[in-house]
Design a protein around this nucleic acid. Structure first.
Lengths: 127, 127
DNA sequence: TTTTTTCTACGAAAAGTTTCGTAATAAAGA
DNA sequence: TCTTTATTACGAAACTTTTCGTAGAAAAAA
């Protein structure tokens, strides 16, 4: 089967946990998810099994408690999701998207500086 | 019913057409959609009826060919979708999202300049 | 007037997503 | 050993989304 570069919402929640924590058991993942919302253990298990079947994660079955490993890389997935959103809602204009994203006022001065220096670098490659 | 600020993918495609073209008939919307992909007339009609029921659009039924008007504003919807994506895939970091969005190299010098001046303005409000 | 085309309404199928219950088994604890 | 707890496998229900076919009415064309 072809690997879906657009994971579903529930799959993305799980991926985020694995990206952050590294390879994890169902129990560990479910515990973390439950810090934010109620979700049954077998629900998380089933999702991981589906994700394994799709090729999004891989289950290491050496131990009884299987350990799940992400097969999609975080940056690659983010890149795809942005591309999706760009076309689905911003008519392909990264500028519009970026300005909306920065507009919420939650980005620190330090981060703004980092973005600026990225822009400097990008400008360097274009002129 | 509560208005869903997160339209589905198919709904978003239709919204984009109405945002761009202004109030439109089913026929007009369907024609534009068909420039990119095959989709049946009644499919588009049904979606618009569902969207009307959800409060995403409103149907002006004065004429026999109903005219559909967007009730969700483009910027508001974009804002929400970004917020969603920010939390769903970027751990809430706008910086990461912005840097990914600019990283694809499709943003022109002029647009980069505009983003820079937005950043200047944002920095002004924080120090 | 008669036929053809265009339109809406709407049910329902098809496909995808999320949730959970139950069974079987293995491990841990009493 | 016997009982309790933890784990996987998996079917299936519940829900959501997308697609389209058919029917009936209105308008346009012949």
């Amino acid at each position: 089967m072809e690997i879906p570069l657009k994971p579903t919402d529930a799959e993305l929640e799980i991926l985020q946990v694995i990206w952050k924590e590294g390879p994890s058991t169902v129990r560990a993942i479910n515990d973390i998810l439950n810090q934010r919302k109620v979700v049954g253990y077998t629900t998380t298990l089933k999702l991981l099994q589906i994700m394994a079947q799709k090729g999004i994660v891989r289950a290491d079955k050496s131990d009884r408690s299987h350990v799940y490993i992400a097969l999609l890389r975080e940056e690659e997935t983010q890149h795809h999701l942005i591309d999706q959103l760009l076309n689905a809602a911003f008519g392909g204009s990264a500028k519009k998207l970026v300005m909306q994203a920065l507009g919420n006022g939650k980005t620190s001065l330090k981060e703004l500086e980092e973005i600026k220096s990225l822009i400097q670098k990008l400008e360097g490659t274009q002129e």
